[in-house]
Simulated scan of single mutants.
Amino acid sequence: MSLYWFGNCRTEEQRAEMERLDRAGVCLFCPDVIRSHEKQQIVRETAHWIVTPNEFPYAGARLHLLLIPKEHVTDLVELTAPARADLFEALSWVKDTHGLDHYGLGARNGDSRFTGGTIRHLHLHVLVGEGDADPDADGEFTPVRMKFSSRPPTR
């Protein structure tokens, strides 16, 4: 089974990068790969987590960070106890550093073909919408939407 599910790509650039990584047989979110990836900027590291901006942020997001466990798992319940506990250190750092008084947190667990995800390595999305900065602002508003389901093609 591939590390990537191409059916949920949002842009051609994202698909091309995932195909390149898939051909190389590497998981972008595993620590050695993400540390050497030219486009992934690590903004914080804890004992068990990496915090990085999403290279392909969702429409409407003024902040879109990923919390990525250093363990290669596909479900939150597969994390070791130390990694589960350390998640809150990473999340607290994000909240404090960005002065957040509200945010969304999304995680897809299991098989990417059904969850709306693209990569078979657990990661959590920290999302703040662009309209959240000024609720009285006039103009176009794009709500942040995170896909939590998909249907793979039948063969």
Rank of each mutant, 00 (worst) to 15 (best):
G106A: 14
G110L: 08
R44N: 11
V94P: 01
H121R: 08
I42R: 13
V94Y: 08
L66G: 13
R84E: 06
D101I: 11
P69N: 14
L127Q: 04
V128T: 05
T80S: 14
L100K: 13
P82S: 03
H121W: 01
N54P: 13
F88R: 03
E71M: 00
L100S: 10
H125E: 01
G117W: 01
A81F: 02
T80Q: 13
V94A: 05
G131L: 07
G110S: 04
F56I: 10
H37K: 09
S36R: 15
H72A: 11
E55F: 05
H102D: 04
L79F: 06
L63I: 15
A59K: 07
I68G: 09
I68Y: 13
Y58Q: 10
F114T: 02
G106V: 10
D134Q: 04
S112E: 08
V51N: 01
D75S: 15
L124F: 15
W93N: 03
P53I: 05
R120K: 07
G60F: 04
L87R: 08
I42N: 09
T97N: 07
V126T: 10
P69Q: 10
T74L: 09
N109S: 10
F88Q: 07
K95G: 00
L124T: 06
A133K: 14
H64E: 11
I68A: 12
V73H: 10
E89W: 01
N109P: 00
F88T: 07
Q41S: 11
G131R: 06
G106D: 03
T80H: 05
L66N: 15
R120Q: 11
L100F: 12
A107Q: 06
H102G: 13
R113Q: 12
S36H: 14
L63Y: 06
G104H: 02
E89Y: 02
R113P: 01
I119M: 08
L124C: 04
H123S: 02
S36Q: 14
L63D: 10
V43G: 05
A90T: 12
V73C: 08
K39I: 01
G131Y: 02
V43N: 01
G110F: 04
H72R: 13
Q40L: 04
D101A: 11
K70N: 14
I119K: 04
P135T: 13
P57H: 13
V51T: 05
A59G: 09
Q41G: 00
W93F: 12
P135V: 15
